[in-house]
C-alpha cells in the first residue's frame, strides 16, 4: 500500500478491452453463487485476485472498470477496495514479485540481513523492478510464518528459514524459469516451492 501511495496520482485509462477466459468466467459465476442474491459485491476481492493473475500480474483502471461492470457495482467501489489491500498491485510488476518480511520476529532472526542481501543480489532497491522485468522486490509486514524466520514470499509461494545460500538457490532457479509461461495452478507452487 505505501509503495502504491502516489500522492494523488491519477491513473489513465489505457482504452484496452479486457475479457476473462471462459474458464475464469465460469469460476467467477461459481464464486458469485456463494453469496446471497444481490450481494455479488462480496465476490469483489476473489475476482480481483483472478483478474490480477489473468491480466499480467497487476491491475489497472480498465480492468477494474470491467470488473465493476461484471459485478454491477460502481467503478469507484472497485478502486476503493483495490487500493486498500496490499496484495493488489496498481503498477506494473515483474514476473516474480519477491516480498520479504520486515516485521519484528523476522528481524530478530536476521531478516534485515536478508533484505540487504536481496538488494545486493538483485541490484535494485525496495519497491523496484529489475530491468529485465523479471523481479519486483518489496518488503512486507508479517507473513504469518514467524517460526520459520526469515521468510519471504515469491508470488504465492512461501520460502522459509532464508539464508544467503537459499536465496541464491531460489533466485537462480527462478531465473531458469524466465521464459516459461507463468502458471498459477497448485503444481506451479509445488514445483518451485522450497518448503521446509
Amino acid at each position: 500500500m505505501s509503495e502504491n501511495y502516489n500522492k494523488h496520482k491519477i491513473y489513465e485509462r489505457n482504452g484496452k478491452t479486457y475479457a476473462f477466459s471462459d474458464a475464469s468466467l465460469q469460476r467467477i459465476k461459481e464464486i458469485i453463487g456463494r453469496y446471497p442474491e444481490a450481494k455479488q459485491k462480496s465476490a469483489l476481492i476473489p475476482v480481483l485476485h483472478i483478474a490480477q493473475e489473468e491480466f499480467g500480474g497487476s491491475l489497472n483502471a480498465d480492468i477494474m472498470d470491467y470488473i465493476a461492470g461484471l459485478l454491477n457495482v460502481k467503478p469507484i467501489e472497485v478502486y476503493e477496495v483495490a487500493t486498500f489491500y496490499t496484495q493488489f498491485y496498481l503498477d506494473k510488476v515483474g514476473k516474480f514479485v519477491i516480498e520479504i518480511c520486515q516485521t519484528g520476529p523476522c528481524l530478530s532472526c536476521g531478516g534485515d540481513d536478508m533484505i540487504d542481501y536481496l538488494k545486493e543480489k538483485l541490484g535494485i532497491d525496495v519497491g523496484e523492478t529489475t530491468a529485465d522485468g523479471l523481479f519486483t522486490f518489496k518488503t512486507v509486514e508479517c507473513l504469518g510464518a514467524c517460526g520459520y524466520a526469515p521468510v519471504m514470499q515469491v508470488n504465492t509461494c512461501f520460502h522459509q528459514n532464508l539464508t544467503k545460500e537459499s536465496i541464491d538457490n531460489i533466485i537462480d532457479l527462478l531465473r531458469t524459469q524466465a521464459n516459461e509461461p507463468k502458471s498459477n495452478d497448485d503444481k506451479w507452487v509445488e514445483k518451485f516451492c522450497l518448503k521446509k
Binding site: 500500500m1 505505501s2 502504491n4 501511495y5 500522492k7 494523488h8 491519477i10 491513473y11 489513465e12 485509462r13 483502471a61 467503478p75 469507484i76 467501489e77 478502486y79 476503493e80 487500493t83 486498500f84
Partner: peptide, 16 residues
Amino acid sequence: HGVLYRGDVAEISTFV
C-alpha cells in the same frame, strides 16, 4: 470519488 488507500496516506480521490 471515495477514500482510496489506507491509514494516514488514505486520500480522497476519483482514481481516474
